[in-house]
């Protein structure tokens, strides 16, 4: 139940979406792009998100693409998490993504949540971004300056960094990274549905482990400093893990109803150790 009224338009094309957005903005209204819409609906009920208009991106064909094109996996922003987990071929094409998004919310919710919606969400876990961060994926966006393709790291730093009328059209991932040895681990307070205490996605390319985290801090991140420490020779696994964790400013480590800061740090250490063991970095 959204107490405040809003307009709804669904856009059939990329340019139409930007046009609609601009039109609402020029009228002094606050438009928002709408994918799965689950956050707009739930946070709206609590007066935490109040758009004047929503622009549904799902009808745009480019956002519904799910294909390998010249070795690159192209995923449209409106693809739902269930489409990802249920596509058997993705089990080979991008197994880390499949495993990571499988742990988000529950299956019925995943039928609605879209990949771009999760990445651009207000709720700070945004776990779907983790595989793209470690794979150095590219993001195709569309906005006032039409289409752009940039590194995920330019588009996403803690949260999506987009111009007001810009939205994610597709995520593009090279074969090398997405088929590399991988691990995803998610630890929750209890059960198999819910937010993470720690969610970590990692791949190994040559002797480098790339790793990204959600749930540790109030934003997802990947840190080159942590990755450098994790491959340092001459240190035990435990030493590397401890030093890696020290790289995270402790005041940024979450301390809330899911877990205290101290326990979350303990869980993070265990997760890192398991990742090093499973990816052969030990």
């Amino acid at each position: 139940m959204h107490p405040m009224d809003f307009e709804y338009v669904s856009s059939p094309t990329l340019s139409d979406a930007v046009r609609q957005y601009t039109r609402f903005a020029q009228l002094g209204k606050r438009p928002m792009y709408f994918g799965g819409g689950t956050e707009i609906i739930t946070l709206g009920r609590l007066h935490q998100v109040n758009p004047d208009a929503v622009i549904d991106l799902k009808p745009i064909p480019e956002t519904q693409v799910m294909a390998v094109q010249q070795g690159q996996l192209v995923l449209g922003g409106s693809i739902t998490l269930t489409q990802i987990t249920d596509a058997p071929w993705l089990g080979e094409a991008f197994p880390l993504l499949q495993e990571t998004v499988h742990e988000i919310a529950d299956r019925t919710a995943r039928n609605k949540i879209t990949i771009a919606g999760n990445i651009c969400g207000t709720i700070f876990y945004r776990e779907a971004v983790l595989p793209f961060l470690v794979c150095d994926s590219k993001v195709r966006t569309y906005g006032p300056k039409r289409g752009k393709e940039r590194s995920i790291h330019r588009v996403f730093n803690r949260e999506a960094r987009l111009e007001p009328s810009e939205f994610i059209v597709q995520l593009v991932t090279d074969e090398t990274a997405r088929t590399a040895p991988f691990v995803h681990i998610k630890r929750r307070k209890a059960g198999r549905v819910g937010y993470p205490i720690v969610s970590a996605a990692a791949i190994r390319i040559d002797d480098r482990i790339r790793i990204a985290f959600s749930g540790v801090c109030p934003f997802p991140f990947r840190s080159s400093a942590i990755e450098t420490i994790l491959r340092q020779r001459g240190l035990t696994v435990r030493q590397r893990v401890d030093q890696a964790i020290q790289r995270i400013p402790s005041h940024l480590i979450l301390d809330d109803y899911e877990a205290s800061r101290a326990y979350r740090t303990f869980v993070l250490a265990n997760v890192l150790e398991e990742i090093l063991q499973r990816l052969g970095g030990a």
């Binding site: 139940m1 709804y8 799965g36 819409g37 689950t38 609906i41 739930t42 009920r45 919310a105 529950d106 019925t108 919710a109 039928n111 609605k112």
Partner: peptide, 25 residues
């Protein structure tokens, strides 16, 4: 009303959805 409990689950075409996190439109 938050997409958490599933008591509002309906089918859209043949797929289950939580009706509390879907706009009627």
């Amino acid at each position: 009303n938050n997409g958490d409990c599933g008591a509002c689950t309906v089918l859209i075409d043949t797929c289950p959805y939580k009706a509390c996190i879907m706009l009627a439109v």
